[in-house]
Computed example of a mutant assay.
Amino acid sequence: MTSDATRGKDGEAPAPLCLRVWGGLGNQMFQYAAGHAAARRLGTRLLIDPLEMPLDHAAMGLDLFGIEPEIWRPEGGGLLGRLRSGSVKPKKRHRLWPGPVFMPDSFCHADGYFEIGPGTYLAGYFQSERFFSDCEGEIRALFDLSRVAPTIEPALLAAANDPASVSVHVRRGDYMTNPNATSVHGLLGRDHYDRAMALAERLVPGATFVVFSDDMQAADDLTAHWPNRVLVRDQSREQDLFLMSRCAHHVTANSSFSWWGAWLGRNPERQVIAPRQWFARDELRKVYVDELFPRGWILI
C-alpha cells in the first residue's frame, strides 16, 4: 500500500508535510506558523504529530484559535507497537515517517528550511518570523482572538486600547519553581523591568503600563512603584494574549507567549522592548538567538 506521505508522483497532489508540535502555547504557535507557511509554499496539506499528547485524543494549545489540525497517525511496524506500549518515547515517532526528516539544531535559524520538499517531516523550534513572514497576513488571521473581546471587562479593554498603552509581561511559573527551567531561562528582575519602564516612558509620553503575568503577586511587587499601572488579573491565557495584542506598545519577557503578544500587535508604529538576555547567561553561550527578534525591536 502506498503511504499518504509518499504520494505526489504522476500528477497526484503533492505529498503532505508533517509537523511535530510540542511545548507551551507560544512554542506551538511558532511551530504551527512555520509548518503552515511551508505547506502554503509547497501547495500541500499539513499533518500534525502531537509529540506530548496521545494521538487519538490530541488536545493542543492551538485549539483556542479554533484550529483543527489533521493529525498524523502512523501505520504498521514494530516500533508503533512499542510506542503505544510506552516502551519507546513519542519523540522517536518520526522514525515511522516514510519521507525525509528535517530537524534543525538551532533555536531560531534553520539552513535548508526553504529548500524542503513535499513529504517532509519537520521538527524544530522555528522561533523566528523569518519562517513565516511570507504569509504574515494568514498567520495573523489564524491567531486572531477577537472573539474573546466580549468576555473581557470593559475597563481592561479600554486600558489596552489606549494609544499610550504598553503591555508588560512578567514571566515566572516554572522559570522560578523548576531548577532546570531556571538554569536555562533565568529570571528577569527588578533592574531589568525598571530600565524597560524608563525607556518606555521616554518613547511613549503618558504611557499606561498594562501588566500581565502568570504570577501576579511577583508582577505586583516588581512594578508597585510604577506610574499609571493596570494589573490584569484573573484572565484566561487567550484573554491575556488578546489584550496584549491590543496594546499600542510592548515590554516583553523572555517568553514566547509575550513575543506573540507583541508580534500580533496592530499598531504599525509600536515600540517593542525585549530582553537581550533571552536565556540564562550560560545557556546564551550555546544558543544563537539573533534571528528571534524582528527588525526594529529594542533589546536591553
Rank of each mutant, 00 (worst) to 15 (best):
A158I: 08
A5L: 13
M176Q: 13
T2M: 10
S128R: 11
E153K: 12
P227T: 13
V230P: 00
V204K: 09
F102Y: 14
F143A: 08
L96A: 07
G66Q: 10
A123W: 01
G11P: 02
D174H: 10
D214F: 09
C135Q: 06
L292H: 01
R195A: 14
T177D: 01
D134V: 09
T120D: 04
M216I: 14
L51I: 09
R45N: 08
H36E: 06
T252S: 02
E68T: 15
T177Q: 01
L142M: 14
G112K: 11
F242Q: 00
D234A: 15
L55Q: 05
G137S: 14
C247I: 03
S165P: 06
N178D: 15
M176H: 10
W259M: 05
R171P: 08
I300A: 07
S3E: 10
D111Q: 12
R130A: 10
S85I: 02
R270E: 05
R270V: 05
N228C: 07
L25H: 07
Q271L: 02
M29R: 03
A181M: 02
L46T: 02
L19P: 00
L203I: 04
G186S: 01
R140P: 03
L62G: 01
V101L: 03
P294V: 10
L299V: 12
N254S: 05
L187H: 02
P227Q: 14
G261N: 06
E291F: 05
I152P: 02
P69I: 10
E138C: 12
D49M: 11
L156S: 12
W97A: 04
V166M: 04
R45Y: 03
P205K: 10
T182S: 02
P118M: 07
R229G: 03
R130M: 10
A37Y: 02
R237E: 13
I152F: 12
T182L: 04
D63Y: 09
G99I: 08
A59K: 13
H169T: 07
G112H: 09
H185W: 00
V251C: 09
E201M: 13
V251H: 03
E70M: 11
V170C: 01
E238I: 10
E129I: 11
M176V: 15
A196S: 12
R276V: 04
R266H: 11
D221I: 09
L145C: 12
V272P: 00
A160W: 05
V170Q: 00
P54V: 06
F293M: 07
